[in-house]
Simulated assay, not measured.
Amino acid sequence: MAWIQITTDVAEPVAEPLSDMMTEIGAVSVTFMDAQDEPIYEPELGTTPIWSLTKVMSLFDAETNAKLIVETIQANMPDLKDHYFKVEAIEDKDWVREWMDQFQPMQFGQNLWIVPSWHKAPNAQAINLMLDPGMAFGTGTHPTTAMCLEWLDTNPPAGKTVIDYGCGSGILALAAQKLGATKVSGTDIDPQAIQASEQNAERNHASIDFALVQNFNSEPVDLLIANILSGPLKELASEFERLVKSGGELVLSGLLTTQADELIEHYKKFGFELSELATTDEWARLSGHKV
């Protein structure tokens, strides 16, 4: 089946009402995209961020009268009366295959690979984590996740106890166990993340305890890794002080390079010396130990 795509750029307050209108008149899907390269680095928890200028892309059946769709939108939303709508035909494709082809095995450091289930591991002798892209955050494609995986590959936690705080897909917990950790646990505020982490652990034949933050309980560990955002990282400093052994290691990521110095100083108050800074683009990773 072929499709008709109708696209327009609107201000933030208009995006949601326009999406609702397009759905009401027959759109099979509506997607929001950034219309002017405006990154949203740290949205408020529980919010769905929309850009100040948002590209609204709607997909309709090929038999749809696009002119009538645009006229209906403009009649019901007068502010868009003179607005430009781009209409284009979209060729029929195997969308699932096209999506799958975007994800290839990825190497982190010397020995660690993330391999989608539909691919063969490029190096059978390496440490291969079978992980498919999903709804939970963390499949290695984001720089902050990549920097944490590279740290683990360079500093394998053999014989250590580890917490993955803000586990997302469980990728860092899985990597830690595959790299020799004796006991690994993970936690997150999102039930979907816990479910995804448990499924990924089962797929990789890994025994890891995952629990929601409100149900999470752990003795102090040798290594805690947290790949979240700078705001929560700052708030969690006292909790991390409790969860990391004296002399234990702490790895923090998910922050911007401009936020690193403030976080380093903040964690000093809780007994942490974060002396190592790594960066990729505008993102940073801090690592160090508890004094």
Score class of each variant (00 low, 15 high):
Met1Leu: 12
Met1Glu: 15
Ala2Ile: 05
Ala2Arg: 12
Ile4Arg: 10
Gln5Thr: 11
Gln5Ile: 12
Ile6Asp: 02
Ile6Glu: 03
Thr7Arg: 13
Asp9Arg: 03
Thr23His: 12
Glu24Asn: 12
Val28Ser: 13
Val28Trp: 08
Ser29Phe: 01
Phe32Leu: 05
Gln36Lys: 14
Pro39His: 10
Gly46Gln: 06
Pro49Ala: 08
Val56Thr: 08
Phe60Pro: 09
Ala62Val: 12
Thr64Lys: 00
Leu68Arg: 15
Leu68Tyr: 10
Leu68Phe: 09
Ile69Trp: 06
Asp79Thr: 13
Lys81Asn: 09
Tyr84Arg: 08
Phe85Ile: 06
Phe85Glu: 01
Glu88Pro: 01
Ile90Ser: 04
Asp92Gln: 14
Asp92Met: 05
Lys93Gln: 15
Lys93Ser: 13
Lys93Gly: 06
Trp95Ala: 10
Glu98Asn: 06
Phe103Ser: 00
Gln104Asp: 02
Met106Ala: 09
Gln107Arg: 14
Phe108Gln: 02
Phe108Ser: 02
Gly109Met: 03
Leu112Glu: 02
Ile114His: 03
Val115Met: 07
Pro116Lys: 02
Pro116His: 06
Ser117Leu: 07
Trp118Leu: 02
Lys120Val: 15
Ala124Ile: 10
Ala124Asn: 12
Ile127Pro: 01
Gly134Asp: 01
Thr141His: 14
Thr141Leu: 11
Pro143Asp: 06
Thr144Lys: 04
Cys148Glu: 06
Leu149Gly: 04
Trp151Arg: 05
Leu152Gln: 03
Leu152Val: 12
Leu152Asp: 02
Pro157Arg: 03
Tyr165His: 10
Gly170Lys: 05
Gly170Ala: 00
Leu172Gln: 05
Leu172Ile: 12
Ala173Glu: 04
Ala173Gly: 15
Gln177Cys: 00
Lys178Cys: 08
Lys178Asn: 13
Lys183Asn: 10
Ser185Lys: 08
Thr187Pro: 04
Pro191Val: 08
Pro191Asp: 11
Ala193Trp: 07
Ile194Gly: 08
Ala196Gly: 00
Gln199Ala: 15
Ala201Trp: 00
Ala201Asp: 04
Glu202Ala: 12
Ser207Ala: 14
Ala211Asp: 12
Leu212Trp: 08
Val213His: 12
Phe216Gln: 00
Glu219Asn: 13
Glu219Tyr: 11
Pro220Asn: 05
Asp222Gly: 13
Ala226Asn: 09
Ala226Gln: 03
Asn227Ala: 11
Ile228His: 03
Ser230Leu: 04
Ser230Thr: 14
Pro232Met: 07
Ser238Ile: 13
Glu241Thr: 04
Lys245Ile: 07
Lys245Arg: 08
Lys245Cys: 08
Ser246Pro: 10
Glu249His: 15
Leu252Asn: 01
Gln259Val: 01
Gln259Phe: 04
Asp261Thr: 14
Glu262Lys: 05
Leu263Val: 03
Leu263Asn: 00
Leu263Ser: 02
Glu265Ile: 07
His266Asp: 02
Tyr267Thr: 06
Lys268Val: 05
Lys268Gln: 15
Lys268Pro: 05
Lys268Ser: 07
Lys269Val: 01
Lys269Asn: 15
Lys269Cys: 00
Phe270Val: 03
Gly271Pro: 01
Leu274Asn: 00
Leu277Phe: 06
Leu277Pro: 03
Ala278Arg: 14
Asp281Trp: 10
Ser287Ile: 06
